[in-house]
Amino acid sequence: MKKVTKSASLRRVERERKLGLTLFLGPFLVTFFIFTVLPVFVSVLLSLTDFNLLEFPNFVGLENYSRLFLNDTLFPKAVQNTLILAMITGPGGYILCFAFAWLINEIPPKPRAFLTLLFFAPSLSGGLGVVWSLLFSNDKYGYINAWLLEFGIIKEPILWTVNTDYMWPVCIIILLWSSIGTSFLTFIAGLQTVDKSLYEAGAVDGIKNRWQELYFITLPQMRGQLLFGAVLSITGAFSVGAAIFPSPTQDYTLYTLSMHLADYGGARYEMGYASAIAMVMFIMTYVANQVIRFIIGKLGK
């Protein structure tokens, strides 16, 4: 049957396809290449030059990289901070997103809809960070300081954004709070499409509680959403910036690669060097993604 229809319309289809492919795919593909793929290649080239925005770039080979890895005293610190922050806020945010989505899915529909809004609302507004800087303000009018003073827990205001003892926890709380967003909504949706009959079948097959159900049925059914969320979380985690802290941070605590990048690119105009930093960031993100994809691929197998 297929052959009959083919001979009748195939030639027309083929002709239409060539034109169609150009028209359908063209606008996206051209702009995607120019504004997403090309910048990466340009970054690679720039990282081999001494470009400074003003003069024509000179080719310097791997000099930027050798300087970055061997002579830059801040670079190891930035890599270390980025890795630690990424390892906490990446998986932390990811697990929180999933845990909340899963828990919300467990409760009845009416509170579920309300809670979805509560949890998703922060990511809908761009600038709620202002509230955090009011809460963690360094003087006694900062709300947290005011409360702690009122209850007599502390005697003088804590310098939240300058005192290196407190910067990490404050930063992590804010980053985790802000990481719940797109992935969370993806998981909410993913959980709702899991075939409900599988749960009943699972109960017959001896699954005893919600934890077993989660591991043996829900997680393997959600592989697609889990991967999607992972890409978003990892990319976000590796490009993490300074949250509410003034950059550069006190004693370079919390100093991350993206701050290092902004410093060389935005303040010193050493574009070649900044591009080398950008390459390191991209490679770190890519490797982390491949690892996570491998792990998620193994789930429930």
């Binding site: 504004f35 910048p39 890409v231 990892i234 990048l261 900044a274 950008a278």
Partner: peptide
Amino acid sequence: AVNKLITTSLMISAPAATYASYII
């Protein structure tokens, strides 16, 4: 190949290509 490229492109964090983008 195009589909693979799109998946990979999601892993590029925006600041990593800012300066190259500016030139383009």
